[in-house]
Amino acid sequence: MRKAWWKILSVLLLVYTFTVGLMANVPRLPQLQETIRNLYFHVCMWFAMMILFIISVVHAILFLRNNKLKHDICSRQYAVIGIIFGILGYSTGAIWMSYTWADPNNPAYASFSTIARDPKLIGAAIALLIYFAYLVLRDSITDMDKKARISAVYNIFAFAFLFPTIWILPRLLPSLHPGQEGNPALNTNDVDSRMRMVFYPAILGWTLLGVWITTLKIRINLLKEKMLIYE
């Protein structure tokens, strides 16, 4: 365990999220009721995804600048864990919406067609699909240098596409998802101070957990590279 303090911090923040997040008082809102606590879980997945993708694109640019294979490995692993957090965010959102948006007289699967047309969901799906394509493209090239270079360039493209798909488009079109008029969960009208006490630590905790998992994968891959050299 090298440089363990931030890993311990991550665990402590997550334990704090899981206990205080479920026990502390939250605003009593119709429709949302206790599900407002999903803010500490569902929303944090997207924050963690965004931060991991930013780290990934930074490594992609660094690779293009100095051609070090380490940056390529980092870029790939951060993208993968970012995708996992994205999938988790998407599926938790699917559960959450089927109990808050769906017509209570109409089961979730019957009203799903109207929900699935929501621009925010389509945008997020496109963004994730572009990142899936990143993995497919990467693994289809056998030549190491070419693979690293092309996937770094594609990574920048995929990152650029995050902005129209999950930041701009959903704000232009009417959506059931909150936050059309600004930044969901960040403006002071949505989240009151009691919830922010848990929300910000939760974001940090989840992100650090994602970074921890990624560093493990990076270290394994670096070991693999070294073994290839020694063989």
């Binding site: 890993k7 921890w212 394994i220 070991l223």
Partner: peptide, 13 residues
């Protein structure tokens, strides 16, 4: 599980 994995990788390194 993560901590165990971390330690194993450290040993490998």
């Amino acid at each position: 599980y993560l901590v165990r994995l971390d330690k194993k990788i450290s040993r490998l390194e």
